[in-house]
Design a protein around this nucleic acid. Sequence first.
DNA 1: GCGGATCAGTCAATCGATTGACAAGCTCCG
DNA 2: CGGAGCTTGTCAATCGATTGACTGATCCGC
Lengths: 331, 331
Amino acid sequence: MTIRDVAAAAGVDISTVSKVLSGANISVRDATRARIEAAAASLNYRPNASARSLRMSRTGAFGMLVPDFTNPVYAEIVRGAVREAESRGRVILLAELDPSHSPAIYLRLVQERRIDGLLVATARSQSPILSLLETDEVPHVFINRRGTASSLSVVNDDEEGAAVGARALIEAGHRRLGIINGPPDIDTAQRRLAGFERAREQAGLPPAVVVSGAYSAGGGHSAARELLARPGERPTAVLVSNLTMALGALAAFAECGVAVPGDMSVVGFDDGELAAVAQPPLTCVAMPHDQMGAMAVELLESVLAGEPAASAVVPTPPTLVFRSSVAPPRI
Amino acid sequence: MTIRDVAAAAGVDISTVSKVLSGANISVRDATRARIEAAAASLNYRPNASARSLRMSRTGAFGMLVPDFTNPVYAEIVRGAVREAESRGRVILLAELDPSHSPAIYLRLVQERRIDGLLVATARSQSPILSLLETDEVPHVFINRRGTASSLSVVNDDEEGAAVGARALIEAGHRRLGIINGPPDIDTAQRRLAGFERAREQAGLPPAVVVSGAYSAGGGHSAARELLARPGERPTAVLVSNLTMALGALAAFAECGVAVPGDMSVVGFDDGELAAVAQPPLTCVAMPHDQMGAMAVELLESVLAGEPAASAVVPTPPTLVFRSSVAPPRI
DNA sequence: GCGGATCAGTCAATCGATTGACAAGCTCCG
DNA sequence: CGGAGCTTGTCAATCGATTGACTGATCCGC
């Protein structure tokens, strides 16, 4: 099933087959074209990717680096990217790369020329690959994190998302707000905090209680306990910066006898099936993570095509999914 | 940074470089070998994967088909597979392939010769790729599902896992058991049911209430409501065949005023951070999903090496992670 | 009917690495 | 000293596809 077989079956030279099937502008009699196409179809021919890559210096593959497969947020980003890549005839080479991990896998992908470009969804700013990216000069796009000045990125409108969440609490009548945020060195956490504070200030509310923890259930759990332990008047409503954190926070509130939404209203970031079965069902700000992945593929593609490209924010607005974890404060 | 550059830097022929770096048994003076290795290291040379693949008809990549990235079970399987692949110098090409999805992506991977073998973690038995796998004759290994007679697979000991869960309930004193199982046409659900029933019969207990639903929070939620609605005496304890289902079931029990563990003890399948922050914290049977992925890579590798290979069950025994969702039945 | 343009397709170099066949130089032994 | 045998490499074909240069054949206008 090589191009040679197709050429033999159609009675033409392999170069003709190549030009016809790749859509090059070559003048060929309709009859010849039809013979070639019929032969290719009947033999179930597809060009060998290795041969093609070698000749064209273009593999048709993107690499994707993700810090944690089991995090549903990244799962959605990966899904969006894989789907978009597929529709463009590309494939995705996936690797998990947490900060503690050696970048060996990354080096393999890039230096062996297995990929045309890299989608980088690792959030930490001190990740060792950041410097490698600069020196290797691989076309790349950051996802869910703004890159350095010279590099491109696609992010969600986290500021607006946090503002949407905060406004939901404010409109329910809360005046003492809190936020359980992600790690302060992570870009998304910074933007969410900024959006939250913007909404709070616009509403003329007093400073909020800010605590932070890891983007995980355990992180949300301990951050929530820290928030409850803070001296001073306790907030009546919190925004939690991530779904799994929010589930952890709900557990902490339950343990400490803080009723939700009676004593504490909660809005979580990132919607999902789990939010609906939380106890109580969790009001969430739904972020279009899959679109972020898809847009990153799109952006990387136009970089490779040499088209003008700029960092982007996913245009789909964050939406509030209202469930029963938010209620007016007790009087 | 091609082999030609290394050869020039070391003052030898490219074939010598190739033989030295690939470890072929060639006799080379130590000094020459050292020159070549130094040149390769200083130029940061790595063989071009496309050229290598073309010549050797071996890409160094495995394809992996997964039905749902966002399912944490698959995320763990993928993690195990990716890590093992990485340690063997391979890369993983990932595609999401639910049954409704066209197998176009699969065809691309196989027919373009992008991969040496395929890891198939799609569970449904009527999936369209099953027949394609036979005709394309691509080396493959099924994960978490037994294959046809002719094909290899790696599965967890789901029977034993279910038995472990059932015995935990039986030892707590329960005699009327129920099971909220996955879809009956899925292999894992069948095996879990079998293990559950085995344990129940060995304990001499009466028939259990069996309901099933999709492997999702929503599926667990509706299956739990169905279980509560069943006529006859209600079970005092249930095994739930999947973590997200278990979270859905807990929500259903809470809605219906069924106290856990007071009115109903619950054991879930698959441990995870979310189980710890469920309300109440969920007793779980932990299954070594990542090992399943790793073993599948190992198995596929030995198939390719022409070594004798047989389907395997992950040897790590399932373990019970005890939390507060199990208690003795009320008298 | 002739020169130039266009059509329809072929030729051959090339991408980068691998590998079996082969060759030059050296050693060793009778 | 001459040949066998080993050491230390080199030569060149090959994997499958792409693509610029090129060549016959045909057509068109005058």
